[in-house]
Amino acid sequence: MGNILYFLARYNRIFIFVLLEITALSLVVSYHDAKRKTVFSFLNDITSRFDSKVSDIKYYFHLKSTNESLLAENARLRQNQPNAKWADTMRQVQIIDTTFKQKFTYQPAQVINNSTNVKNNYITIDAGTNEGVNSHMGVVSTNGIIGITRFSSGNYATVLSVLHKDFQVSAQILENDELGSVVWEGGSPDVVTLKDIPVHIILKKGWHVIVSQNSDAFPKGIPIGTIISFQTNGSEATYNVKVRLAASIRNVQKVYVINNILLDEKKALETKTLESNK
């Protein structure tokens, strides 16, 4: 026993070193296991409060561009109002419309922390479970797609930004309805890649890429960006299409969190179908 104690005392620095490194490594590993909740959820509220103060200051520097994008969105929405359209026929038919019910609800939120300069980028927003924000909800800005919520605490939520290697969204080219999926392959934070477009499809620069109807988190038609270049991918039968994001993730200040009310029902049905196959 005495020998063991002597041994421990003699080499204490090695033991403490190894112990601390194993603790740190286990943190790294447990975080990489996506099924577990964030390790620091109880501390996130404290750090978020600090980031929130910093963000309040930064927000003033972006007031002009935030206003402009809100104005642009308002203009777009006004164009779709019934009073902005005119009928080319005199006949009027009145229909009591009961077909449309709410499917998506929008919760506004302020970005309080944001990164675009690392491989896996996250955004923190100031809306959490108290506002009805849970994980896997779509996040958009006034200009286009931003990301998907990952974890949420009482007052805050983290968002897996488009600029994250795990992010993927089902997309569609507006002009020819071709379906593909959008991912980020690193590099510029303004450019993402649209995959799975077959080479026999005709593409043009400047065509618009939007969210397709297959997406769970986003309503169809949310802008993703515009095509800036495309090339064939060696021997593969699909294009490698580069898309410039419609929303600048670097400067985003105000976002909307989208809640798909029917998602649970859809998921339950899909799981049931998969299980019946087994």
């Binding site: 490194e21 740190a24 590993v29 447990s30 750090t47």
Partner: peptide, 17 residues
């Protein structure tokens, strides 16, 4: 710093090393 940065363990490991 890890808690702020949402990167549990990475900077703790590096600074101990």
């Amino acid at each position: 710093y890890d808690i702020f940065n949402n990167t549990p363990g990475i900077h703790s490991f590096s600074s101990v090393l």
